[in-house]
C-alpha cells in the first residue's frame, strides 16, 4: 500500500473542493473500493488523502421540486431504508439489495460506487434507466462552481469518468417518475450475495395499456462501462409486449452487446444471459 504525504478531513464543501485545486488528491468516502485497490497496487494513493466523510453538504436524501437529490455520501444501507427512495425508486432499492454484503453496504457510498465506475457497479444500472444526473462541484477561482451532467455520459472506461481531478461528485439527481412508470433490475452472478455481476440488466419505461414507451434499457458488465442499449430501447419503444416482440427484442439485445471473456464468464455466456434475462424480465413486465 502506498502512503499519502498529507491527510485532510474537510468539514465543508468549500474546504473540500479547495483542497482539490492542486489535483494530486485521492478522495476517501466509504473506502470499500479504495482500500482493496490500494493494497493490491491497482491504485496509487496520491500526495494527499482527503477524507470527505465530515462534509455535511454531501449527505441526505431530499425532495427538491420534482427531483430527488441523493447526497454522494449516502450509504447503500441508507438508500435501502429511505422512505422517498422506497416510494419513488423501488428499482434502486432492489439493486442495493444485491450489493455486496450487509457490512459493506453500511459503509459503501453511492458517490463512491459512481466514481469507481465499474462496468459491473450495482447502483449504476438502475440510475441509468432512471435518467439520473451527476452533480459536480469545483472551485476554479475563489468561489464554488456547481454543474451537472447526465449519468449516461459520465462513464468513459473501467474506473474512468468525466470528472476532472479538481471536481467532487456531490450527489445525484433523479426526476420523480410520472404515472405508469415501471422499472426492473436483475443481477446475475454465481452467488446470491457478495458477488460481482456476470451481467446485470435494468429496464424502465412507461407502461400504458400494454404499450411500453420512454424505454430505458441499461446493461452492466458487458462493455468497458455500464451502458445504455440504444438498439434494444428502439426495438421496444411503442411496442406491445407480446411473445414475438419479446423474443425479437431479446435477440437484438444479445446482438447489441460486445462483452469480453474474464474470470467470471465468457463473452458467449454473457450474450446468452443478456438474451435470456431480458426475455425473462420483459415477460414478467408483460404478465404484471
Amino acid at each position: 500500500m502506498t502512503e499519502p504525504k498529507h491527510y485532510f478531513a474537510p468539514t465543508s464543501l468549500d474546504q473540500a473542493v479547495e483542497c482539490l485545486k492542486d489535483g494530486d488528491v485521492t478522495i476517501l468516502a466509504g473506502g470499500t473500493d479504495l482500500t482493496p485497490q490500494s493494497q493490491s497496487g491497482k491504485l496509487r494513493i496520491k500526495q494527499t488523502l482527503m477524507n470527505i466523510r465530515r462534509v455535511p453538504e454531501l449527505t441526505g436524501i431530499t425532495l427538491e421540486g420534482d427531483e430527488i437529490r441523493i447526497g454522494a455520501l449516502t450509504t447503500i444501507t441508507e438508500i435501502m431504508e429511505n422512505a422517498l427512495v422506497k416510494q419513488h425508486f423501488p428499482v434502486l432499492v432492489e439493486a442495493c439489495d444485491h450489493f455486496a454484503s450487509d457490512q459493506i453496504r453500511n459503509v459503501a457510498t453511492l458517490g463512491g460506487n459512481i466514481c469507481n465506475a465499474s462496468p459491473a457497479g450495482d447502483t449504476l444500472i438502475p440510475l441509468l434507466v432512471l435518467d439520473a444526473s451527476v452533480e459536480l462541484a469545483s472551485m476554479p477561482e475563489a468561489t464554488l462552481y456547481r454543474h451537472s451532467m447526465p449519468l449516461s455520459t459520465f462513464f468513459v472506461g473501467p474506473g474512468k469518468t468525466r470528472r476532472s481531478l479538481c471536481e467532487l461528485v456531490t450527489g445525484v439527481r433523479i426526476r420523480v417518475p410520472g404515472p405508469n412508470h415501471i422499472a426492473h433490475f436483475h443481477k446475475l452472478g454465481t452467488r446470491p450475495a457478495l458477488d460481482i455481476s456476470t451481467i446485470s440488466i435494468g429496464i424502465a419505461g412507461t407502461l400504458k395499456e400494454g404499450i411500453l414507451s420512454n424505454v430505458r434499457v441499461a446493461f452492466g458488465a458487458v462493455a468497458p462501462t455500464p451502458v445504455r442499449a440504444s438498439q434494444t430501447e428502439k426495438a421496444l419503444e411503442g411496442q406491445r409486449l407480446d411473445a414475438v416482440t419479446i423474443g425479437k427484442v431479446a435477440g437484438i439485445a444479445r446482438d447489441e452487446v460486445k462483452p469480453i471473456d474474464d474470470v467470471r464468464a465468457t463473452a458467449w455466456y454473457r450474450k446468452e444471459m443478456i438474451h435470456n434475462i431480458t426475455k425473462r424480465m420483459l415477460s414478467h413486465v408483460a404478465q404484471a
Partner: peptide, 14 residues
Amino acid sequence: NPNFRDYKLVTAPE
C-alpha cells in the same frame, strides 16, 4: 483469482 472476491466460497444464504 487469489482473493475472496473471485474465489467464491459458499455464503450463508446458499
